[in-house]
C-alpha cells in the first residue's frame, strides 16, 4: 500500500482567456439591456404619477367631465371610468369564452386538421393587425348601420383580445401533460369529460391570468374606440346603445387641449388607467397562485 503523498495544488479558479472574457462581456451586456429596458419604463411611471397624482381623488373618479376651459379642481372623469369598465367588461364577456373555446378546439379536438391549422393561422394574423384597423372594421360593419355605442367599442376590443386569449390559452393547454389525459381515458371518461374535468382544471390558472392580461391590454387601447364610441362627455350607463366614452379616448381628447385644466384631467385619466392595468396584473398573479394549490 502506497503511503499518502503530498498532492499538487489544484487550481479551481476560472481559467483566464477568451472564454472568460466572453462570459464577462455577455454578463455586462445583459445588465445593460436590463437598465435600457427599465429606465424608460421608470420614467413613464414617474411622469404619470407626478403629473396625475395631484388631481386624483374620489370626486375626480366619479364627477362628470366639465368643459375644457374648466380649471383642474372642477369636475372629473366619472363617465370615462364608467365607460372603460362597462366596455372592457362587455369585450371580456365576448372574447374570453370564445377564445378559450377556440383554444380548446385547437388543442383537444382539431388536432392537425385543416380547420384547426386555419384557425391557428388566422389567430396569428389577427395578433398582427393594427388596432386602428379593428376600429375601422367595426365602424364599417356595425357603426355605419347601428350607430356609435359601447357595444361597438366592445366588439372592436373583443377582436383585439380574441387572438391573445386564443394563443395564451392554447399555450396553457399544451402544457397539460398527456399522461393526465390518458389516465382519465383509462377510467372510461369521454373526451368532453376529460377536457372539462382534467384538462381545463389543470390549465385554468394560466388561462385566467392570460385572459386578465388580455383585458389589461384592451382596457388601455385607444384606436379601436375612436371610430366606435364617439367619445362624448356625458355618462352613458347603457353600454348597448348611444355614444359612450372611455379613459383612453379621454386622454387622447384632453392631451392636445391648450387649457391647463383639461391637460391635468388627461394626466389624471392616464394614472387611473395605469392603476386599472396594475390591479388586473396583480389579480392575474393572485389567480395563478390560487389555482396552483394542487399543483405541487
Amino acid at each position: 500500500m502506497a503511503a499518502v503523498t503530498a498532492q499538487p495544488q489544484v487550481d479551481l479558479r476560472e481559467p483566464k482567456g477568451w472564454r472568460r472574457t466572453r462570459n464577462r462581456a455577455a454578463t455586462v451586456a445583459m445588465y445593460l439591456a436590463f437598465v435600457v429596458v427599465i429606465v424608460p419604463l421608470g420614467f413613464v411611471l414617474y411622469t404619470v404619477i407626478a403629473k396625475g397624482a395631484s388631481i386624483i381623488s374620489w370626486s375626480f373618479l366619479t364627477s362628470p367631465i366639465p368643459v375644457n376651459v374648466a380649471p383642474p379642481g372642477v369636475g372629473g372623469m366619472g363617465p370615462a371610468v364608467l365607460g372603460t369598465i362597462e366596455i372592457t367588461a362587455l369585450a371580456t364577456a365576448i372574447a374570453v369564452p370564445l377564445g378559450v373555446l377556440g383554444a380548446i378546439y385547437l388543442n383537444e379536438y382539431g388536432g392537425r386538421g385543416p380547420l384547426a391549422r386555419f384557425i391557428a393561422f388566422m389567430a396569428d394574423v389577427m395578433t398582427g393587425v393594427p388596432s386602428i384597423i379593428m376600429g375601422l372594421f367595426i365602424f364599417t360593419i356595425w357603426v355605419l348601420h347601428f350607430g356609435y355605442s359601447g357595444l361597438a367599442g366592445a366588439f372592436a376590443l373583443g377582436c383585439l383580445m380574441l387572438p391573445i386569449v386564443i394563443q395564451s390559452s392554447h399555450e396553457m393547454l399544451k402544457l397539460v401533460p398527456n399522461s393526465l389525459r390518458e389516465a382519465s381515458y383509462a377510467l372510461g371518461a369521454t373526451k368532453a369529460r376529460v377536457t372539462v374535468t382534467v384538462v381545463l382544471p389543470a390549465a385554468i390558472g394560466g388561462i385566467v391570468s392570460g385572459s386578465l392580461l388580455a383585458v389589461a391590454r384592451a382596457a388601455g387601447e385607444t384606436a379601436p374606440l375612436l371610430f366606435t364610441i364617439l367619445t362624448v362627455t356625458t355618462a352613458n350607463p347603457n353600454v348597448f346603445s348611444g355614444a359612450n366614452t372611455a379613459l383612453s379616448t379621454e386622454i387622447f381628447a384632453n392631451a392636445d387641449q391648450p387649457f391647463l385644466g383639461a391637460q391635468a384631467r388627461g394626466w389624471g385619466a392616464a394614472l387611473t388607467l395605469v392603476a386599472i392595468a396594475f390591479i388586473l396584473m396583480i389579480a392575474a398573479r393572485l389567480v395563478t397562485a390560487r389555482f396552483a394549490r394542487y399543483q405541487h
Binding site: S179, A183, S184, A186, G188, P201, A202
Partner: peptide, 28 residues
Amino acid sequence: RRRIGMVFQKPNPFPKSIYDNVAYGPRV
C-alpha cells in the same frame, strides 16, 4: 376502458385531492 383499466409507467395522479383522484372514475 370502463371494464379494462390501466396503470401507467409514470405515476400520474390528477392535480386534485387524493379523495377526488379515487372518486374520479366512479363519478365518471
